[in-house]
Design a protein around this nucleic acid. Structure first.
Length: 513
RNA sequence: GGUCCCAUCGUCUAGCGGCCUAGGACACCACCCUCUCAAGGUGGAGACACGGGUUCGAACCCCGUUGGGACUGCCA
């Protein structure tokens, strides 16, 4: 298609925090645009003033920025385009496809119930009443309904699902304009897509049932002579004279993505499912890993692997490889993938990525206690042991907290539960003091010294190091012990072993048994 | 109720009529490696919803059944 640039849009409604499903939709649009060298447009669908909040817009923008999905145009605001919608409504009204309706919801329901109709929905009551567009003073305001065809079908040609046909007989005359004059989704959305020359509409499958309405509106607008905004007038009118409406304002290509579901196989809900993107950011997921995982939800790459950089995703992504069936958002798999991305980082990048937890707002120690050099030395050992960055504080907290915070479960198991713990600690302390005196306080020397202690106690190193580890780091699990003790230094190591030894002795002395 | 969508291991999926005694990944189990924990290695268990067709041949095509889901707002 020479001369035709692909234009896609992500059009969220700011009615809540940014949702993983929305992020997936945004990503697929973004990938398609980047792959094709097209344009990615951001449009905020905020026509419902009562439900939209500015903070949610900020949340969307922040999440998109975090994930690296940069918009080429926008954000456009529907709330700033009311004049454009009014023009569309006028045109549609003149064309006779819109009619005024003053039925309340209760009235409609009452009539369908009384008539015993099996198919609820609007009954076309006001179709032939010829109500004026604006009611007289004192009368209730009137909504405008779109006159749908009585027969035939509307077909949606969908890249993902093929041709889907909807019978007009099942389509009610839907409300396109609120009584207060404001446009509804189906109208504003279509006007914008035409004006913004959108070529591909890529969105969730939940919008598939309303797509025929959009197509009807699109065709009515085209037939009524709607002029897309911002198109050079000369070119357009020349084309417009001859071309059929559908050619003049061609329908976009539709692609309805499979739903993201929870463990109950229901559409992800903001209310009951952990779907806020910012939550994953704060738990320490890497944006590139999150994007990688999101891409795998509903799309499968043509190569047999799952770890991709964002650039690789751009080069491999194709709507033709999008699946049909709903996908479960599996945090366990996301976590694994995140671990892979964490390990793929350079040490410097890892240290940098950890900043929010080491010296930022998520740190659990006083900033003056944090030693960047110590962290940098331990970083490679930590990096290969965490799946999400939020695990980092637990793993290195003993380096920046004095006295060390003791995990009581670890203490119980490795010290209280080990009759030899006391003598092991004594032997280790003695050996370490020797290293300190000899000036050979290195991980290697500590390793050998501890091995000797283990041998002396008649056990394997693995069993012998446990009490020492708990005494020094406060936990049974963590980064390699000897490197940890090396960076911690003799003073603090010996002090901690001494404190633990005293506690064991104290417990023994006051014990009842 | 109506309209529409979907249907391969627990999960994400490969498969687009013969390469399938169905492959990979996550999770799970066992073993190996190992100073703990991870990571890594090896092995294991684990699926074509059901019934009819079409065909020499069906996970793949068609029909039906069943199951799940979405929509059915003067929300988007």
């Amino acid at each position: 298609m020479p001369g035709v640039t692909l234009r896609v849009r992500f059009a969220p409604s700011p009615t809540g925090y940014f949702h993983v499903g929305s992020a997936r939709t945004a990503l697929f649009n973004w990938l398609v645009a980047r792959r094709a060298g097209g344009t990615f447009i951001l449009r905020i669908e905020d026509t419902d003033a009562e439900r939209n909040r500015e903070e949610w817009v900020d949340g969307i923008l922040a999440a998109l920025a975090w994930l690296g999905m940069d918009a080429d145009e926008g954000p456009y605001r529907q709330s700033a385009r009311t004049e454009r919608y009014r023009q569309a409504v006028d045109m549609l009204w003149e064309a006779g496809v819109l009619y005024a309706c003053d039925c309340t919801r209760d009235q409609v329901e009452g009539r369908t119930k009384a008539a015993g109709v099996l198919t609820p929905g609007y009954d076309g009551h006001c179709r032939g009443r010829g109500l004026a567009r604006v009611a007289g003073s004192g009368e209730p305001p009137r909504a405008l309904r779109f006159r749908t065809p009585d027969e035939g079908t509307v077909a949606v040609d969908d890249v993902v699902r093929g041709r889907v046909e909807f019978p007009c007989s099942a389509m009610e005359d839907f409300v396109a304009v609120k009584a207060n004059g404001g446009p509804l989704f189906v109208l504003a959305n279509v006007v914008d897509d035409i004006d913004m020359a959108i070529t591909h509409v890529i969105r969730g499958e939940d919008l598939l049932p309303t797509t025929p309405r959009g197509i009807l509106v699109w065709q009515a607008l085209a037939a009524a002579g709607w002029q897309p905004e911002g198109t050079p007038t000369g070119v357009r009118s020349a084309d417009g004279e001859r071309a059929a409406p559908d050619e003049r304002i061609p329908l976009p290509v539709f692609a309805h993505l499979p739903m993201l579901v929870n463990e109950q196989r229901k559409k992800l809900s903001k209310r009951r499912d952990p779907v806020a993107v910012e939550r994953y950011r704060d738990e320490g997921y890497l944006p590139q890993a999150f994007v990688n995982y999101l891409a795998l939800l509903g799309w499968s790459p043509p190569v047999d692997r799952e770890l991709f950089s964002v650039d690789e995703l751009v080069s491999w992504f194709d709507l033709a490889d999008v699946n049909h069936s709903p996908a479960f958002f599996d945090v366990a798999k996301l976590t694994h993938l995140n671990g892979e991305h964490v390990r793929a980082l350079s040490t410097d990048a890892f240290v940098e990525a950890c900043a929010p937890w080491t010296k930022g707002h998520l740190a659990r120690w006083r900033s003056e206690d944090f030693d960047p050099e110590v962290f940098a030395r331990m970083a490679p050992l930590v990096q290969e042991r965490v799946a999400v960055l939020g695990e980092v504080p637990d793993m290195v907290g003993f380096l920046f907290t004095d006295p060390v915070e003791m995990d009581e479960a670890s203490w119980e198991k490795a010290v209280v539960g080990d009759p030899q713990a006391g003598e092991l600690l004594d032997a280790a302390a003695a050996a370490y003091r020797g290293l300190e005196a000899a000036g050979t306080w290195t991980a290697d020397a500590l390793h050998r010294a501890t091995e000797a202690v283990a041998e002396g106690a008649g056990r394997k190193l693995g069993k012998a190091q446990a009490p020492v580890r708990v005494a020094v780091t406060g936990r049974r699990v963590g980064p390699p012990l000897f490197e940890s003790m090396e960076v911690l230094g003799p003073r603090r190591v010996l002090e901690r072993i001494g404190r633990a030894r005293a506690r064991v002795a104290g417990a023994g002395g006051t014990g009842t048994g």
